[in-house]
């Protein structure tokens, strides 16, 4: 499902972000990527959905060779992947419903399926009643649920989460984790990047530890 072979990535100024990374993440698995700030967790996730380009090595995601996909065709890869961020990335000028529907609209879904699937996604994160609210009126935990609903609405094969609980209280973090576990139980592969060791210990899933761009423990 996700395979990395000897992947190197440096940022401008030759700062190494990832050094000789080789990994295999199986289909429908749940994997934590953990490590201190600056260890390369976010970079690793960004490489997986083609947001950043890598220097050498190979990355295969759902059978697609990420390094070989042309810029204009990256959308084909991204349609298999849902991404959730620490800062939610919600659009303040849209309602909760519109924010979630936006993900379907952007890939040209019909209005009818948009209505049904958006409602279903909001129900699955427990926010259907707040569908007409402005996301800025919601708490941090609720905003992250909206972001998760947006990532889930297109039913992607892979769910990438970059520090999704970074801004949340421990209790809320566990609730958010449960939503990812539910997605995993429905068949999605989940890659969950976090520096929260408590969460990793609590959930008891396989984990990858990164340190200064190197895999310490696969």
């Amino acid at each position: 499902m996700i395979q990395l072979y000897n992947v190197f990535k440096t940022y401008d100024g030759n700062i190494p972000a990832l050094v000789d990374i080789s990994l295999l993440i199986k289909e429908q698995s749940f994997v934590f990527v953990t490590g201190a700030s600056g260890a390369g967790k976010s970079t690793l996730l960004k490489l997986l959905f083609g947001w950043e380009r890598f220097d050498s090595g190979q990355i295969l995601v759902k059978g697609m060779n990420v390094g070989k996909i042309k810029k204009e065709k990256l959308y084909l890869l991204r349609r298999h992947i849902g991404v959730v961020f620490q800062d939610y990335k919600l659009l303040p000028n849209k309602t909760v419903f519109e924010n979630v529907a936006f993900a379907m609209e952007a890939i040209g879904a019909s209005s009818r399926s948009m209505r049904y699937k958006t409602s279903d996604a909001l129900k699955s994160v427990g926010l259907f009643k707040k569908r007409d609210s402005n996301p800025m009126q919601l708490s941090g935990g609720e905003q992250q649920r909206v972001a998760i609903a947006r990532a889930l609405v297109n039913n992607p094969a892979i769910l990438l989460a970059d520090e999704p609980t970074g801004n949340l209280d421990p209790d809320i973090s566990l609730e958010i984790l449960k939503l990812f576990e539910m997605a995993n139980q429905q068949g999605m592969t989940v890659v969950f990047a976090t520096h929260n060791h408590e969460l990793v210990r609590h959930a008891n899933y396989p984990f990858i530890i990164l340190d200064k761009g190197n895999v310490v423990r696969p």
């Binding site: 959905f49 991204r78 349609r79 993900a103 952007a106």
Partner: peptide, 9 residues
């Protein structure tokens, strides 16, 4: 966001 979601250019 559109780019991340997979919207075409």
């Amino acid at each position: 966001l559109m780019l991340m979601i997979g919207a075409t250019h």
